[in-house]
Amino acid sequence: MAFGLTKKKKEDREKINKSLKKTRRGVFSAISDLFQANEIDDEMWDDLEALLIQADIGVDTSLALVSALREKVSKQGIKRVADAYDLLKTEMAALLQEAQPWSLEEPRLLHVVMVVGVNGSGKTTSIGKLAYYLKQNGRRVVLAAADTFRAAAIDQLEIWGERAGVDVIAQKPGSDPGAVVYDAIRASQASRQAEVLIIDTAGRLHTRYNLMKELEKLRTIAAKQVHRAPHEILLVLDATTGQNALTQAEKFKEAVNLTGVILTKLDGTAKGGMVFAIQEKLGIPVRFVGTGEGIEDFAEFDPEMFVESLFAPA
């Protein structure tokens, strides 16, 4: 890997593992128990369905997972619960597998990453962590404060910029986000100080027509300045979000064509089971996970590890 983005994969795994420990004690350890204790019967299937739904995986996806597993179990003549369990893990990990590589690996003078999401999902924090993460991997990073709407959003990004040791390009609160993006791109290019520009956008509900228009505009501005920019458009998704996560992803995808998800707040007890539906129905992969409040609590997403951790006994 050209820029060593996967260098820290092992540490990442440990981080996800650690943050998922609490879940394992919750819903997913119940799934583990289910497979260890019971025989394969109707009741087990019903219970499994219930447990998947409670993990926010969603009714449709849960039903699909269970019926696919059921069919395979009977086709392959699986009798042992443990084998069915392995099969489920494989199925679930397969759902989250993404073939497309992260485009920041491509050779390019300036990478533009746009970060979007609803209020309170953790955009600014995630940008701080992503900046630090990229910097640790040898990238020169600049941040653009294009959330000029929320009170103190710019200050918050500036503090994160300071923590990560990267420059923040900002204007006054209430100024035109488009102008901020334009300036930030010009500054990043002119002085060649940046390889990656990360744009923080205003967090507004995806049902706000004007915000969606604004995002489209920012995207166009970026595209006019830099060839094929933004190269990545990441949706920040709070792991505690329920079924609305899919709608959010749908609406943001419609407006700006998302390339990936940053799943935040994985250190709680909710685990963002919605990413299964988002990957399956919209083809948007999870790229990173946020696992705590510290600047280092951030990791590349690893589907096998994610699922493995979910099912591993506590």
Binding site: D56, T240, T241
Partner: peptide
């Protein structure tokens, strides 16, 4: 509480 919260709302 965020209206978008999923199943975990109860535990929280």
């Amino acid at each position: 509480v965020d209206a978008m919260t999923g199943q975990d709302a109860v535990r929280v």
